[in-house]
Design a protein around this nucleic acid. Sequence first.
RNA 1: UGCCUGAUGGUGUAAUGGUAGCACAGGCGACUUUGACUCGCCUAGUCCUGGUUCGAAUCCAGGUCGGGCAGCCA
Length: 608
Amino acid sequence: MTAAHQEPAAPAPSDFIRDLVAQDVAHRRYPRIVTRFPPEPNGYLHIGHAKSICLNFGIARENGGQCNLRMDDTNPAKEEVEYVDSIIADVQWLVAGWADHCLGFKPKGATPAAVTTNGQPDFYLAPAPKSKVQIPNSKIGTEPFFASDYFGQIYTYAEALIEKGRAYVCDLTPKETEEYRGSPDRPGRDSPFRQRSVAENLDLFRRMRAGEFPDAARSLRAKIDMASPNIWLRDPLLYRIRHVAHHHTGDAWCIYPLYDFAHCLSDYLEGITHSICTLEFEVHRPLYDWILENLNLPRALPHQYEFAKLNLGYTIVSKRRLLQLVQEKVVTGWDDPRMPTISGLRRRGIPASALRRFAATIGVTKYDSVTDVALFEHAVREELNPAAPRRLAVLRPVKIVLTNLPAGETVTCDAVNHPADPAAGTRPVPLTREVFIEADDFAEVPPPKYFRLRPGGEVRLKYACIIKCDEVVKDAAGRLVELRCTADLTTRSGGPNADKKVKGTIHWVSATHCLDAEVRLYDRLFTVPEPAAAEDFLKVVNPKSVEVVAAKLESTLATARAGECFQFERLGYFTPDAKDSPAPASGSRPVFNRTISLKDAWGKGPAA
RNA sequence: UGCCUGAUGGUGUAAUGGUAGCACAGGCGACUUUGACUCGCCUAGUCCUGGUUCGAAUCCAGGUCGGGCAGCCA
């Protein structure tokens, strides 16, 4: 984006969660609103996470609060630092210029501090001062929150539960545990180890921690109710034994807390007020509350709220399946521009503001829906249209010889940089004897209502003049070689016949001044509206999701850099590829990605 | 057949007992040196059956249909 672009002055969004937050604010139930975005670092963030980020950061922003970025890293078997790095980069990019002042990071290495709250011992981990939030990853700087930084504290809470008789060490095997749990319509049975003494539980739990037992030999369980209609209240597991190194804590632990135990406590330790998650955690909420309520915690407790995650048409929004696409090399990586990952979308040229606009458009509800991709595409065009400078580029060139223009002569034309913004100015584009036009813009046998170039017909070269097609030259095989046309220079802007009307105006570039480039044209990755519902989603991958063309660009595009977005007139929005673009001035062909085509009422489909 | 939860045009949503509105998509038209943008007009909806009420998308009851939950995943 070359032009600074402000967030649209839209009315503050409203939804059922924001309404609840507003009530809590009105009743002063918390000193400050604190939310969190808690991804597990086992994959890259995608557009569904973008919805959640916009919700959590949006609420923080609208209430003068803060939103902590927290790695929910309690399962070392699946997690990697590559993922934590990508998550940090993606969140910062998405939030930049919008809610970075709300982004909660902690001082590097910080863990919850012992404090006294209302005369009671307590633990709390404050975010870093705002001034330092901008420099994550430096040695003395800040970093995201990590659930794994709370393992010590969580362990202490586990012992507290044991001492209260609310948790016990269970020796059932995983298989037996499943059998004892019962089923949704059949109550479970008590574990034979349920009545162990506090002393024995404490001893066993400490020995679990000390590494005396092999994986899965024992577990720590909450003692709640094996007959509960809610499966998650049937003595859920709190801790499991896993002799595995952790990406953040190394070999410090061989027992790891499960999500249900770690999450609510992480929220509490960070002073989270509103813990917002997706619908599948609804049945876990009673457990979330049970754990916190059974620990006599002195500060106000966080509460969990659930919303429907995003489902997008023609798209897969599932880390597991996205990982499959990467592993099976259906795409080139997590940041392939066809991927709905935040890094893929960014590389594709989608601005962060478009993701935010999209999030605001779809709102937040508990209704499980499939959002039409058209809503997303609209948000992208809404952001790009006012911001993207216009350029001329020909994707599938056809040569035109302007027979009345001498070779070597250059007619300099003025092209406007943005039709809606005179301040963007103009740039010179050279008209020469040989130019390229789009293959689509000539039809030897035009269909009805076709108003571009045809044999004997006239068309305007945008910003230049009207030309007439005198002759169609073909080779022996009948393939089009070139079009021989005459240019009517009196129809140039400012010329005596400038106002002459022709039905069509087409884009073009000078054959002698243009730049060769590789342009990648992307289409949807799947051929069906709901690939997630397909028997095998890999079988509905669109075989034509990318097409690479050798294009001719106006020479001013030589200095374009990744991150900048241009509208190639009549075609769509394009951006230099951040990974494959050659170094500037290297002389190699630049590589552009098509972010999105222009709407096309004529072709009724993706342009070009 | 257990528990939790939801249902408003094709899609996403608003209306919080008082005129069912907005956006997208679709259609028609105006404008146009982008078949874009912009502008105007149009199409199209409260899951069903009862009940409460002067008045129900909203409250109540019963149904129907959808989603979620039985990992030592999150």
